[in-house]
């Protein structure tokens, strides 16, 4: 595609801290290259703001290659912008044309409080993982990988679930601010493997309880999470989590 430059109007959410009331601030960004990533465009904006002696816009980012899940931005109503299975850092400016107005908001969910501007606190996810997203049975020394037979299809499904990067787009996109896609990915990833099997019931119950404690909404199978997930995590995982939970309820063995 032909390279081009564009001038943009940005409406960005600014909020001093968790307690302050936020609001939109409008910026003009000039000469943005169509080859830039969305975050590079924000770098240009921030350099401009620093040069003007103003406070740069705070936003999360780390790897800038679509694997860390930090770059949370709600762009013109879409988590990570309009491209399918794409994080904000992988969204490129060729999506936009000269004169466009782009509205950028933080992830909005009561369980993801704003820290500053576009940066939100996603430690609720860490606490859900801490409630059960691990294997604690003694596995002894690392053994030969082939010693534990795993069905190919299960290995693939587990791998697909494990590709969740904990970005929180599912929560951001869900009308109920539910974290079920995230939790179901974490539960599925372990439940499908022999190492995760011994603790599967307690894990499902504990992680669901922690998810509720953190104040996420309940899943009503709307599917906006799946549509926005940058890793293409399927709501088939939510079906699996529901089965895991039902299994724990009716087997009566889970302590919870």
């Amino acid at each position: 595609m032909q390279h081009y430059n564009m001038n943009l109007t940005l409406k960005v959410w600014r909020q001093k801290n968790n307690k302050a009331k936020g609001g939109f601030e409008t910026f003009q960004v000039k000469n943005v290259s169509s080859e830039m990533s969305f975050l590079e465009m924000f770098d240009v904006l921030n350099e401009q703001l620093v040069a003007e002696g103003k406070e740069p816009v705070a936003f999360d980012h780390d790897c800038r290659e679509g694997i860390c899940g930090m770059c949370s931005m709600h762009i013109n109503g879409r988590a990570h912008g309009p491209w399918e299975q794409t994080t904000t850092c992988q969204l490129h400016m060729r999506e936009y044309k000269d004169g466009d107005t782009i509205v950028v908001e933080p992830w909005r969910a009561n369980s993801f409080p704003v820290i500053k501007d576009l940066v939100v606190d996603r430690t609720a996810f860490d606490r859900i993982i801490a409630a059960g997203g691990y294997v604690s049975v003694n596995t002894g020394n690392a053994q030969d990988a082939n010693a534990l037979p795993i069905e190919k299809q299960k290995a693939d499904e587990s791998f697909a679930a494990a590709s969740c990067i904990g970005c929180g787009a599912c929560v951001a996109a869900c009308p109920n601010a539910s974290a079920m896609l995230f939790v179901s990915a974490k539960v599925s990833h372990l439940a499908l493997l022999p190492q995760g099997d011994p603790e599967r019931k307690v894990r499902a119950v504990n992680m669901v309880q922690q998810m509720d404690t953190e104040g996420f909404g309940s899943c009503t199978n709307i599917g906006a999470c799946e549509a926005e997930c940058p890793k293409g995590i399927s709501i088939e995982n939510i079906a699996r989590l529901n089965r895991e939970y039902l299994g724990a309820v009716f087997s009566g063995s889970a302590q919870g």
Binding site: V103, R108, A173, G223, A224, E228
Partner: peptide
């Protein structure tokens, strides 16, 4: 579920990511 997002989005996805009836 309606109380899980006290500050709503100014621009929302609408029907782009889900069906209205859901």
């Amino acid at each position: 579920n309606m109380k899980r997002r006290s500050v709503r989005y100014t621009v929302s996805a609408g029907n782009a990511t889900s069906k209205w009836y859901s």
